[in-house]
Amino acid sequence: MSGRVLTRLAPVVLVLAAGLTGCGGSDGEADPPATSQSPSTDGDSVAVTVTREGDSFTPNGERVELAVDQALVLTIDADEAGELHVHSTPEQDIAYDEGSSEHEITIDRPGVVEVESHDPDLIILQLEVR
Protein backbone atom coordinates (compact mmCIF):
# COMPACT_ATOMS: atom_id res chain seq x y z
CA MET A 1 0.00 0.00 0.00
CA SER A 2 2.60 2.51 1.07
CA GLY A 3 4.79 1.71 -1.94
CA ARG A 4 1.97 2.55 -4.31
CA VAL A 5 1.13 5.68 -2.36
CA LEU A 6 4.72 6.80 -2.49
CA THR A 7 4.89 6.26 -6.24
CA ARG A 8 1.75 8.30 -6.64
CA LEU A 9 3.09 11.03 -4.40
CA ALA A 10 6.47 11.27 -6.09
CA PRO A 11 5.33 13.72 -8.81
CA VAL A 12 3.72 15.96 -6.20
CA VAL A 13 6.90 16.00 -4.12
CA LEU A 14 8.95 16.79 -7.21
CA VAL A 15 6.64 19.61 -8.27
CA LEU A 16 6.70 21.01 -4.74
CA ALA A 17 10.46 20.82 -4.50
CA ALA A 18 10.82 22.49 -7.89
CA GLY A 19 8.35 25.16 -6.86
CA LEU A 20 10.23 25.83 -3.66
CA THR A 21 13.55 26.07 -5.44
CA GLY A 22 11.94 28.34 -7.99
CA CYS A 23 10.64 30.66 -5.29
CA GLY A 24 13.97 30.67 -3.54
CA GLY A 25 15.78 31.49 -6.77
CA SER A 26 13.65 34.37 -7.90
CA ASP A 27 13.38 35.95 -4.48
CA GLY A 28 17.11 35.76 -3.94
CA GLU A 29 17.53 38.49 -6.53
CA ALA A 30 15.60 40.97 -4.41
CA ASP A 31 18.82 42.26 -2.86
CA PRO A 32 19.08 46.03 -3.03
CA PRO A 33 21.18 47.15 -5.96
CA ALA A 34 24.58 48.53 -5.09
CA THR A 35 24.55 52.29 -5.28
CA SER A 36 26.98 55.05 -4.53
CA GLN A 37 25.34 55.23 -1.10
CA SER A 38 26.36 51.68 -0.26
CA PRO A 39 27.99 51.40 3.13
CA SER A 40 31.74 51.23 3.25
CA THR A 41 33.54 49.53 6.06
CA ASP A 42 36.61 51.32 7.22
CA GLY A 43 38.47 49.59 10.01
CA ASP A 44 36.30 49.63 13.09
CA SER A 45 33.37 51.58 11.74
CA VAL A 46 30.79 51.45 8.97
CA ALA A 47 30.19 54.65 7.02
CA VAL A 48 26.94 55.53 5.28
CA THR A 49 26.01 58.73 3.48
CA VAL A 50 22.42 59.91 3.77
CA THR A 51 21.27 62.55 1.30
CA ARG A 52 18.18 64.65 1.78
CA GLU A 53 16.75 66.68 -1.11
CA GLY A 54 13.50 68.26 -0.06
CA ASP A 55 11.27 65.42 1.05
CA SER A 56 13.22 62.65 -0.60
CA PHE A 57 15.98 60.66 1.02
CA THR A 58 18.59 58.26 -0.22
CA PRO A 59 19.08 55.49 0.69
CA ASN A 60 15.50 54.23 0.67
CA GLY A 61 15.15 51.57 3.38
CA GLU A 62 18.44 49.85 2.59
CA ARG A 63 19.88 47.17 4.90
CA VAL A 64 23.26 47.82 6.48
CA GLU A 65 25.15 45.16 8.43
CA LEU A 66 26.72 46.28 11.66
CA ALA A 67 28.34 44.52 14.59
CA VAL A 68 27.23 45.05 18.18
CA ASP A 69 29.04 48.13 19.56
CA GLN A 70 30.56 48.89 16.15
CA ALA A 71 30.34 52.56 15.21
CA LEU A 72 28.06 53.61 12.36
CA VAL A 73 29.25 56.92 10.93
CA LEU A 74 26.40 58.70 9.19
CA THR A 75 27.33 61.53 6.87
CA ILE A 76 24.19 63.54 6.30
CA ASP A 77 24.01 65.88 3.31
CA ALA A 78 20.77 67.80 3.71
CA ASP A 79 19.24 70.81 2.03
CA GLU A 80 17.24 71.53 5.19
CA ALA A 81 17.62 70.74 8.88
CA GLY A 82 15.74 67.85 10.45
CA GLU A 83 15.90 64.88 12.73
CA LEU A 84 16.45 61.15 12.36
CA HIS A 85 15.21 58.60 14.87
CA VAL A 86 17.15 55.44 15.53
CA HIS A 87 14.68 52.83 16.74
CA SER A 88 17.03 50.98 19.01
CA THR A 89 15.96 50.29 22.59
CA PRO A 90 16.13 52.94 23.99
CA GLU A 91 15.52 55.18 21.01
CA GLN A 92 18.24 57.58 19.83
CA ASP A 93 17.71 60.88 18.02
CA ILE A 94 20.03 62.50 15.52
CA ALA A 95 19.40 66.18 14.87
CA TYR A 96 21.11 67.45 11.73
CA ASP A 97 21.57 70.89 10.25
CA GLU A 98 21.46 72.08 6.68
CA GLY A 99 24.62 71.16 4.81
CA SER A 100 26.93 68.30 5.55
CA SER A 101 27.33 66.85 9.01
CA GLU A 102 28.75 63.69 10.50
CA HIS A 103 27.12 61.64 13.29
CA GLU A 104 28.16 58.49 15.05
CA ILE A 105 25.91 55.89 16.66
CA THR A 106 26.42 52.46 18.16
CA ILE A 107 23.89 49.76 18.96
CA ASP A 108 24.53 47.57 21.98
CA ARG A 109 22.21 44.63 21.26
CA PRO A 110 21.63 42.32 18.30
CA GLY A 111 18.53 43.00 16.21
CA VAL A 112 17.20 45.00 13.28
CA VAL A 113 17.13 48.72 14.04
CA GLU A 114 15.36 51.17 11.78
CA VAL A 115 16.67 54.64 11.11
CA GLU A 116 13.69 56.83 10.27
CA SER A 117 13.01 60.35 9.28
CA HIS A 118 9.90 61.91 10.73
CA ASP A 119 8.14 64.51 8.67
CA PRO A 120 8.19 63.04 6.12
CA ASP A 121 7.83 59.56 7.64
CA LEU A 122 10.31 57.42 5.79
CA ILE A 123 12.50 54.49 6.74
CA ILE A 124 15.97 55.33 5.53
CA LEU A 125 18.10 52.47 6.78
CA GLN A 126 17.60 49.14 8.49
CA LEU A 127 20.63 48.23 10.55
CA GLU A 128 21.18 44.50 10.90
CA VAL A 129 23.13 44.39 14.12
CA ARG A 130 24.83 41.08 14.89
Binding site: H87, T89, G111, V112, V113, E114, E116, H118, D121
Partner: peptide, 12 residues
Amino acid sequence: SAHGLGGAKDLP
Protein backbone atom coordinates in the same frame (compact mmCIF):
# COMPACT_ATOMS: atom_id res chain seq x y z
CA SER B 1 6.70 58.42 16.50
CA ALA B 2 4.93 57.06 13.48
CA HIS B 3 6.72 53.81 14.13
CA GLY B 4 4.96 50.90 15.76
CA LEU B 5 5.55 50.12 19.40
CA GLY B 6 8.90 48.78 20.48
CA GLY B 7 12.42 49.44 19.36
CA ALA B 8 14.72 46.98 17.69
CA LYS B 9 13.23 43.98 15.89
CA ASP B 10 14.51 40.44 15.61
CA LEU B 11 17.32 39.58 13.23
CA PRO B 12 16.28 37.47 10.25
